[in-house]
Write a protein that binds this DNA or RNA. Sequence first.
DNA 1: GTTAAAACATGATAAAAATCATATTTAAGA
DNA 2: TCTTAAATATGATTTTTATCATGTTTTAAC
Lengths: 143, 143
Amino acid sequence: MLSNSSKYAIKAVLYLALNSSEEKRVMVKNISTAINVPQAYLAKLLQELSKERIISSVKGPKGGFFLSSLNLQNTLMDVIDVIDGKKRLNSCVLSLEKCDLDKPCPLHNIISPVKHKFIYNLQNKTIKDFSLEIKSGISFLPL
Amino acid sequence: MLSNSSKYAIKAVLYLALNSSEEKRVMVKNISTAINVPQAYLAKLLQELSKERIISSVKGPKGGFFLSSLNLQNTLMDVIDVIDGKKRLNSCVLSLEKCDLDKPCPLHNIISPVKHKFIYNLQNKTIKDFSLEIKSGISFLPL
DNA sequence: GTTAAAACATGATAAAAATCATATTTAAGA
DNA sequence: TCTTAAATATGATTTTTATCATGTTTTAAC
């Protein structure tokens, strides 16, 4: 469903949503220990996200990664799209090309409703929305 | 969520449910072309399922794979367990160890309800149930 | 301007998943 | 009993994913 890379990227982005700002940049090292993801690997992921303007960064001393208020308007689907590409999430559980409402595969009806809700949320809730939920104790970011 | 291997295995088992019987065995070659999966790879998967008694087989000429009436009582979860192991489906979307009802991760509430429904169906509907649904036109097995 | 701290770029390695190949065993049928 | 058709067993190869390593560029602070 989601690649490891996407999971890492989501965790990192949510971490930044909670712990960074224009003025308070965070460096890979700190993010990686906080969310428990190998540093060099995470660095690569963050660079991709940065290149696609999903997150922000500044080089040099006192530099690091952060989310601008514009970045906070992105969705987790934007993150996933950059890391996994668009196809992965949208394909049928059994990877059947021809599976659709008219000719649903045997697992379609079981999984379809959840998946749509899942995708709907991923592409409609902003990163800011998620961070607010975490701040208010509705959800959590354990390691 | 499901590995490619599991998807292949599920397709093969459902194919057998519809097209085989104690007397009418089907050989890998025919299954593989029917469900569009590489023959040698599928052979390996079927052998694992056979060893675990999820499906039945006889060697030699006129041999092949089939589902006994006992086999038809198995569930797709049995298939998945053999191919992917038990952990894969049950883990959190973000692979967070500590994600649970008490401390749900940000995606937990979005995906949890229907995932449970999915898993419930996988382990409670028999392969026979699925084949009946296909026979009655409720669901389909395209390629 | 020199130094140092950070992201950025690129590529090498390792591990896992998917795929292919080949020899062995079993059983039917002549 | 011999041949042949099938599954079975085993392992090699390829591809993808995950991980590691190292050099380059940018920028703050002195």
